[in-house]
C-alpha cells in the first residue's frame, strides 16, 4: 500500500473549483513531484493534504489514516511535515526558536537536542545565525530555516512547496542538493515546483497538473524527455 494515497480530491474556494478530481500516490522512500503552471492547483493540493484546507470530497490516506477530517495540528504528529510556499518562518523569533517550534509535537529534550545538532550540521549557516531574528535572514537562508524547521518534527514524509522560488541560482542548486540528501536519509519527499527541469532531475515519479486535474503522469526520467513536457514546461 502506498504511504500517501490521495483519491478523487475535489477542493473549492467558494464557487470556484480549484481541484477537480485529483488522485495520486506516494510510496515510502520516493521523491514525487507535482509540476504545473501557476494556478494549476499545486499549492491547494498540499494545503489540503496537511489540513489547512478542507476538501469538498475525496479521501487522503496517510499510512491508512484519513487526513481530510483530521485537524492540521494532529497531522504533524502522524509524521508529516510541510515546508510552505513563501517559507513562512516566524520573523520575530530567533533562528533557534524557529527550529524549536518545529519540534513542538515532540517531548524528549535529549532527542530534540540531537535533532537540532543534526540540523546545524546539515545547515551550518543556521548555527552561525542561531541567535538572529529569522526575519533578518536572506531568502535562501530563510528557505534553509523553513526546511530545518520542518525536519525538526522528524517527519516520515516532507511536503515542500516551491522551495526554489525567488532564490538566486546558486541557492537553487543548494536547495535541490539538500532535497536529495533528505531523501537519501530515508525521508519520503513530495515536491511541488515550477522549476520543472530541476524537479524532474531529482524525482522518481512526477504528476503534471493542469487547471485542477492530473494531465500526465510517469517516471521522471521519461517525462524529462517527453516532447509535450519539453515544450510546455521545460522551455525547450
Amino acid at each position: 500500500m502506498a504511504m500517501l494515497e490521495v483519491k478523487d480530491l475535489h477542493v473549492s474556494y467558494g464557487m470556484i473549483q480549484a481541484i477537480k478530481g485529483v488522485s495520486f500516490e506516494v510510496n515510502e522512500g520516493e521523491v514525487i513531484t507535482l509540476i504545473g503552471a501557476n494556478g494549476a492547483g499545486k499549492t491547494t493540493i498540499l494545503h489540503t493534504v496537511t489540513g489547512l484546507l478542507k476538501p469538498k470530497s475525496g479521501s487522503i490516506l496517510f499510512e491508512g489514516k484519513e487526513l481530510s477530517t483530521t485537524a492540521p495540528h494532529k497531522i504533524v504528529k502522524y509524521g508529516m511535515a510541510h515546508v510552505p510556499e513563501g517559507r513562512r518562518v516566524f520573523a520575530g523569533l530567533t533562528v533557534y526558536e524557529n527550529l524549536i517550534m518545529g519540534a513542538y509535537t515532540r517531548n524528549d529534550k535529549n532527542e530534540i537536542e540531537e535533532s537540532l545538532n543534526m540540523i546545524y550540521k546539515r545547515f551550518p549557516r543556521l548555527e552561525e545565525r542561531k541567535k538572529q531574528l529569522a526575519g533578518t535572514l536572506s531568502g535562501g537562508e530563510q528557505q534553509m530555516l523553513a526546511m530545518g524547521r520542518a525536519l525538526m518534527s522528524k517527519p516520515k514524509i516532507i511536503l515542500m512547496d516551491e522551495p526554489s522560488m525567488g532564490l538566486s541560482p546558486l541557492f537553487v542548486t543548494e536547495v535541490f542538493d539538500i532535497i536529495k540528501q533528505i531523501s537519501a536519509s530515508g525521508t519520503t519527499v513530495l515536491l511541488v515546483e515550477q522549476n520543472a527541469k530541476k524537479a524532474l532531475s531529482i524525482a522518481d515519479r512526477a504528476y503534471v497538473l493542469e487547471t485542477g486535474k492530473i494531465a500526465l503522469t510517469g517516471n521522471a526520467k521519461d517525462l524529462i524527455n517527453d516532447d509535450k513536457i519539453k515544450k510546455a514546461y521545460l522551455g525547450e
Binding site: L52, P84, L93, Y104
Partner: peptide
C-alpha cells in the same frame, strides 16, 4: 515556555503555526 512560544508563533502566522503541530 513552550506555550509562550506557541503564542508568539500563532500571533505571527496561524497557518505556519498549525504546520508545527500547534493547536491554534
Amino acid at each position: 515556555t513552550k506555550m509562550g512560544r506557541a503564542m508568539q508563533a500563532v500571533s505571527e502566522d496561524k497557518g505556519a503555526a498549525q504546520l508545527m503541530g500547534i493547536n491554534v
